[in-house]
Nucleic acid binder design. Structure first.
Lengths: 265, 265
DNA sequence: ATTTTTGTTCCATTATTTGGAACTTAATTT
DNA sequence: AAATTAAGTTCCAAATAATGGAACAAAAAT
């Protein structure tokens, strides 16, 4: 029953916590608040069991139950996340370099890390603000159709890569989305050779990006940074030019991490 | 023991999930990554037990363990929170009204809800952007020293209010922070009468705000909106003037919720 | 008014968590 | 370098919590 949408869930689903997290995933990934019965059919568990599990999640503030008996994600999650984000060392170190890259190109810059088979966006720097915060930050996107994702994959050892790709279920988002392991693996090899990746409207029509891989020495972080923008403004030629500054920024971030984290180990 | 910093934790700490959440709280509320031994002393649990609990949290991506054996909040929390935020109905309805209020005054506008004895900020609209996102959103602040917090308290029934205030542990942030239940309750009564609240540098020196209460009909949300800014620019006189537009915006948000949520109940 | 659907509570059975102790590994001291 | 101490991990019988079927209650639909 592990209908695991996009592979953040890396855990086996045994253990009390594991079961509860499956439920939390279910509710947070839904498009609208779910009623008890909806969850019942999705989770495929006995009513009594499910009821108690949901009650526990509500008690802890991880879910909220409104007057109509509909379950939504709890706001306590926001508090946890705000702290998680504010203190993230990788993000703190990368921030100035992302800002510089944004200044230099005028386009939107992203920072993301690989978790399971998803990219979680850690930061986003935009030129013209006024865009909603949280708009992208925290969001999980598939690794096989994003610049940051493919850059991250290019860092994996052959076995890990094969294992990860084997577990992917491809969704076609646009005409150019990779939908087979073979073409994806071929492109990853190219990316590993040249050191940077493109996303040519593979995730969203009309959106392109160049991305460079970033990693920490202890491999806790495997991710990347990217410059993203509309296809009409970002020709492939321009993107190829920008590969240089993106790679440079990636270098500087990794240097920053060595300085900051190095001494302790 | 349950050294519960600021009262978001509303749950009893029994049950498997409850115990794990205490740990998650501990790690996310710390200022830096914690080592096993640090957590051991803070949590006061047997080593074997703690070790397994932490392992489970790491397996689920709620905590991360780096190469130096230090535990940090997990990035999976970001994914949960991003979804929780993106879909929050209250926030979606309030958004345009917050933006309008920001435009009208030129100052920063906040939206927050009461959870336990904390205010969780759901949204923030700033004039001059370039400020870091997540900067305030998701953060939990005490209810007794914020405009939104006091506005929210003014909505509670006498018994609930007394119960909540009795459980508060006051921290003096500035010279004007409320540090006794009596003076706080007195001010809450005033606020309930006039319909809006001030924060005169009670949480942060040099920062003032006016806030109006907002609530949903089913009382799922009890919170408020505020206009915040530096004391040198926001005289008390100006804040009193702004009480009107803030209350108006609050009215419109509540109207929006009735329209959006009403039909179904 | 009756039936059906939906949501909640109960409790013996089953599975998981607990915590002390033994064990391994890493860091510090002599 | 050996000895000592501290830090982290694994194990297993006992204690505790979760399970799931069924009975019960409340709301909708007929």
């Amino acid at each position: 029953m592990n209908s695991n949408g996009d592979g953040i869930t890396q855990a086996r689903e045994t253990g009390t916590l594991g079961k509860l997290m499956v439920l939390l995933d279910l509710v947070t990934h839904a498009d609208a608040p779910l009623r008890f019965t909806d969850i019942l059919s999705l989770a495929g568990q006995p009513r009594g069991t499910l009821h108690r599990q949901l009650s526990h999640l509500v008690e802890e503030g991880l879910l909220e139950l409104d007057g109509d008996g509909r379950y939504s994600p709890g706001l306590r999650l926001l508090d946890f996340a705000a702290r998680s984000w504010a203190r993230n060392e990788f993000r703190l170190i990368a921030e100035p370099h992302l800002a510089a890259l944004q200044q230099a190109t005028g386009e939107t810059v992203h920072l993301g890390v690989l978790r399971g088979s998803s990219i979680i966006y850690l930061d986003k720097v935009e030129g013209r603000q006024s865009v909603r915060m949280y708009s992208q930050i925290g969001n999980a996107s598939p690794c096989y159709c994003t610049g940051v994702g493919k850059a991250a994959l290019s860092l994996l050892a052959p076995e890990s890569l094969r294992g990860l790709v084997a577990g992917l279920s491809f969704t076609r988002f646009t005409a150019s989305t990779h939908v087979s392991a073979e073409t994806l693996l071929a492109e990853i090899r190219e990316i590993a050779d040249r050191g940077y990746a493109f996303d040519c409207e593979e995730h969203e029509a009309g959106i392109r990006c160049v991305a460079a891989p970033v990693w920490s020495e202890d491999r806790t972080f495997i991710g990347g940074i990217s410059i993203t923008g509309p296809a009409y403004r970002l020709s492939m030629e321009l993107l190829r030019e920008w590969a240089v500054p993106v790679q440079l920024a990636a270098e500087r971030i990794m240097e920053g991490m060595r300085i900051r984290l190095g001494p302790r180990r």
